[in-house]
Amino acid sequence: MIRQDFIALATDLSIEDLLLEYPIASDFLANLRLNSIPKQLSLSQALEEVDEGILQEFGLDKFGVLRSFCEFMETFTPAEVSLHALSSLTIIGGFNKSREPENISLTISCGEIISIVGPTGSGKSRLLNDIECVAQGDTPTGRRILINGAELDDLQRFEMDGKLVAQLSQNMNFVMDLTVSEFLDMHAKSRLTTSAKQVVEKCFLCANELAGEKFMPDTKITQLSGGQSRALMIADTAYMSNSPIVLIDEIENAGIDRRQAIELLSKREKIIFVSTHDPLLALSADKRMVIKNGGIIKVLDISDTEKQSLKAIEELDNTLQKLRNRLRDGAQITVDLLKS
């Protein structure tokens, strides 16, 4: 749609019809305290009856309202093609902390999972930052990040508008005073999805599957347990976030099925980076990146031998989980339990 068409919405359509066709327009009215203007008129007619004083408080006159209406509708009309159609990401090495060259060029495709390991302070978060800002040799590491094989200029980097990367970490919480279903509805609305209802439902079911204990749609998000919150965040990232890259920073003891969570995300054709010290997560990836002294020193394919040990690690993990559950239930721990 071009701006002319949006003007037509304000002049040719009654507000009633406008709201039916574009429910989001009601937010525009609410933002300017115009909720109660006569709905049988068109917006431009109705504005004739509005007290100028109110508009002035918002720094607008009638013409200004119409102009910002067009801007608003333009912003919240889903773009025909997604800016963020991403099929691959390439990391081209820069320098480590001692300014030695980092000899690497690694291309990662959608659906791939990369784990990042390395000592504290080695530069894991720095690498994730480079990816987030699509570094072009202009960050302290000198790395370059290519999207679909190409460099981005500053304008294209700006256009990403922070939507390239979704993040998930241990210390994230819900703070809004909403129930689970209100919250999911709100997020769906902000995505401008047309099939909001189905997506919300899928997301809710999936979150409950990942979480140890079940929760209801009318549970307040702030009252979810740590594990439930993490499960909801992961399901939400999978189904509702439009960011093609997901960065996961240490979600070790979240009390959810970690492997299932990661698999869910990768099935949604996202590129996933997991910074972790957890062997289970590190080996669940397709590749493992080792970082030392600020530089990537190795990229390992997870070998078959490693994949085999994954089974044993899983058993260890299950044993630990069993112990945790017993503790929770007030039972006692015996040595026998360790010989699963």
Binding site: M172, N173, V175, M186, S190, M240, S241
Partner: peptide
């Protein structure tokens, strides 16, 4: 860093 991705997007 303290809130969920979903809340950031909203």
């Amino acid at each position: 860093d303290i809130v969920s991705q979903a809340e950031r997007e909203v």
